[in-house]
Design a protein around this nucleic acid. Sequence first.
DNA 1: ACGCTTCGTCGAAACGCTTCGACAAAAGCT
DNA 2: AGCTTTTGTCGAAGCGTTTCGACGAAGCGT
Lengths: 339, 339
Amino acid sequence: MATMTDVARRAGVSVSTVSYVLTGTRPISEATRERVLAAMAELDYQPNAMARGLASRRSNIVGLLLPLTGRGLGATETAFVTGATEAARQAGYHLMLCSVGTDDSDELQTLATQRLLDGFLVMEVQLTDRRVDLLRKLQVPFVLIGRTEDADGLACVDIDFEQTVDDAVAHLVGLGHRTLAYVNHSEASLASGYGPARRTAAAFEAAVRRHGVEGLMVPSDDTATSGRQAIRRAREQSPELTGVLVMNENAALGILTELRETGLDVPGDVSVVSMVTSEVVADLASPALTAMTSPGAALGAAATRALLKRVGEHDTSTYQELLPCVLEIRGTSAEARKH
Amino acid sequence: MATMTDVARRAGVSVSTVSYVLTGTRPISEATRERVLAAMAELDYQPNAMARGLASRRSNIVGLLLPLTGRGLGATETAFVTGATEAARQAGYHLMLCSVGTDDSDELQTLATQRLLDGFLVMEVQLTDRRVDLLRKLQVPFVLIGRTEDADGLACVDIDFEQTVDDAVAHLVGLGHRTLAYVNHSEASLASGYGPARRTAAAFEAAVRRHGVEGLMVPSDDTATSGRQAIRRAREQSPELTGVLVMNENAALGILTELRETGLDVPGDVSVVSMVTSEVVADLASPALTAMTSPGAALGAAATRALLKRVGEHDTSTYQELLPCVLEIRGTSAEARKH
DNA sequence: ACGCTTCGTCGAAACGCTTCGACAAAAGCT
DNA sequence: AGCTTTTGTCGAAGCGTTTCGACGAAGCGT
């Protein structure tokens, strides 16, 4: 393995000159630059990442804080990770997966103090999140995927839930539906103050009022079975219901099954719009789900860019970027039946 | 940020003594060890990962070579990643996600030569894989998830496809099915020599022969639509077909839809067993899919353990570990109809 | 009491890079 | 022409560890 000293000797310059060629920190004449580059090529030189990191106090690695609960990642999260990895790579950075629980402060502190990582991308952000306080105290650059209660002084990238819900409701109302149900996340997450659940709940209420239609919200777990129960409950409470907005994918599929088995046609009798849904899952259903496709990869890329900017420029300003899900009309939404 | 020098001064010993306490490389008396540990605690000392890496030529990071194609990761892959991350963490290692294309030798070479990673986990292994040759040439420890054509001298961890197919066929035959179809991966992947496709094809043929039943194989892309076409084709060729084994999840859901719309009952008329399927996806269907659940997390953990062993002990022997998928009987398989 | 090994510790030399101050040489001003 | 900048390069001092050789102090067998 060739080192910088080898390159310097071969090119007949000092090591510092080689370093300047590599980093561009100081001007180097065209002639010697070429000699150095040639020497590197001949020796198959690759800078040693550890040595570089030690000397420059930069690892060029960012950590992705992702509590791996064991139940796996959904398509949205996966897309996010993919997008982030790709964006990091393009900027010459690497992404390290850090499976640290949301409340495992010790583990996170170790990780952040080791000087192995230049910054953090924080996923699965709670409304009040201990990791945020810790990272802030430690003065480590970080960007949240999601938002805390008070986002002041923080950098966040998140789905624009308000816009997304509003677009979905507008779509259904535009098709003539006058009585809507929103199948949200579970009661538990609503109670614990889970951001997306809270925000969409509020947004749904606002949208419904603004459009002057009836709206009913019911909670559901993220399983097909729970989705079936939810839609049954919704139809009991409000039998004239023709438009359904549903937060999570598995519940959405359960709802389709339940409606079909009740003898109702989708989208003939009832229209269903799924939120924050990936294309893959949408196509699993038959007919394919009309859905608000989550901008997973775009979010990941945006978050990474924001983080790298903070790392590079010691930027520490408040920053917020919200991306809406985009409506993909497929087979489960149609004009409301006239009566 | 406290350094080792600070700790040494505080404990009244030399830096090397501190280092020995930390690494256990040389014996240290109980008394000074305690003094050193106390000093560390008082100073909130954390070893600097870069310095340690430079001096010891070990980063304690392993790379996960995962071509992120943009179409996202399935549940099995995700579980794998999760399992690997967790296993690495428990051994004091970290996992770095490396999105490197299967034929991007330059990128991989850079990565491996940088001395940033102690070893590699290689996913999406092709039957003949250029990455394998490169890593071998570079003398970097690595473990494959999957198998190449010639696995001699390599370390591989993979699904035991032969066993899995055999178990699935045995399940269907045990229920009285005498004519089976196997909906495999696409024609293209079969032609390109994709391992799982080839291996399951051979295993299916063998199992069918061994059990003395009829078997037909049809290819399908990994989409619901393609699954529907595949089952239609299979029933044309072999109308008395009552048992279906299907390789990929999306196709499996398509098959259920197609059968239902043809007026056939599952599992009353036809039994369907899905292979290498995660629980989440299995539950999406109604009735839930009887499936061979892939041991994603276990595979990831096994691969990581194997890799760390090689890294630590400069072990370079041939190694192979195969884990079968386990049969989860749910709602899509039942006794064959008597006639 | 004598050498001999074992134990516990120290000092110093790596590890391979970045970065700072210094300094000729070249270039830009009046 | 003389003076100040700017440009291009060098040497050396870190960065915070690990690791190796050395060495005094114990512990052992005889």
